[in-house]
Write a protein that binds this DNA or RNA. Structure first.
Lengths: 184, 184
DNA sequence: TAAGTCATGTAAAAAGTTACATGATTCT
DNA sequence: AGAATCATGTAACTTTTTACATGACTTA
């Protein structure tokens, strides 16, 4: 099984979804820490079905094209549950902006500062979006956020990672931009 | 040009290196934010040479096999310098551990807590290694760390990113492990 | 009427990992 | 003698991205 397969199972363990909806989730919720295009999702769904992890049923729609709605099977849920606590083998991080920072000594400092300030803005924007979601979760999901057996707790846990990641990334960009402009 | 190409040029802009040495750097210095295996490095070097970004000369060694030492050309340096300030198009983040967190509600909390505590240890270990390097840099490179035109400044900048990344990641792992164990 | 969304696929190319292949020297 | 390091490559495979392909319906 591929990691993409578990990403899909993770979504289907919460709700039934079509390939189209799965692809959208891959660009939103799960997309912040795992993503895939529809051209990867459709073949993966076929593989998951061939191996008995999911099933589908065709839902006819009047005003929209028909769709295949996928559901996780008992086998799929068991496989997902087992995978969760298995140690993940570390994948190399690849971050182009940090790579640029490594060669920033070659560039015009003012121009480089612009680049990192823009990046800071992007990450701050994402941080603000996450903070709004956090506020909403704390209001609407209060009781569930302390329950490790609740999917809402798990959603909150991943959101926390996003918050920390963006906050830290933005701070680093700002620090570097300041340093490039000679601000002490 | 590929990003890997710029990673290689970034290393060659600082010192001449063989494919073998480049591969090692890809697992150390640059490896923390960009990495590649030797099977990717050798063909990429050939491509870079074919396009005039690098040249090589064979260095004969008595006690070791001969090696090809690569050097960046003026064209290569110019290309690298231009690339640094060009906006990087965002690549999707893929983090299997965060994906596991998304489905952690399915797992036994105690078992899951173990997983995230182990991850916290790994990131804390990496953080400690970075902190040692930081201490060393501040002692040995003090004058350069404020000079944006110095490669040492750039090395320090990427190290800062590593420090923040590991610190934040470890804190998140610890928070999640605590939450899974019901610690408030 | 043109653009956008919903919906599902396949094909080709690029990027990255794992495995295959060789050979000298050095360290234990 | 066996394992590790230095040194360079190719081949096969997996993963991911980009492009090709189609068609209905909705909104501006």
């Amino acid at each position: 099984m591929t990691t993409l397969g578990y990403a899909i199972l993770g979504l289907l363990s919460r709700e039934t979804l079509s390939g189209y909806d799965l692809t959208r989730r891959m660009g939103e919720q799960v997309g912040y820490f795992w993503s895939a295009r529809h051209s990867q999702v459709y073949p993966e769904l076929a593989r998951l079905e061939a191996e008995g992890y999911v099933t589908h049923s065709v839902v006819e729609q009047r005003e929209r094209p028909d769709k295949k709605v996928y559901e996780i099977t008992g086998t799929g849920l068991a496989a997902l549950r087992e995978w969760v606590t298995e140690p993940a083998r570390p994948r190399p991080t690849r971050d182009e902006l940090v790579l640029k920072a490594y060669s920033v000594w070659l560039a015009d400092p003012a121009e480089a500062a612009r680049l990192f300030r823009e990046a800071a803005s992007r990450h701050e924007g994402q941080l603000e979006r996450y903070e709004e979601i956090e506020g909403w979760m704390k209001r609407e999901w209060a009781e569930d956020l302390g329950r490790p057996g609740s999917p809402r707790f798990a959603s909150y846990a991943t959101l926390r990672r996003g918050l920390g990641y963006e906050r830290e990334y933005a701070a680093w960009c700002r620090w570097l931009a300041d340093a490039l402009e000679g601000i002490r």
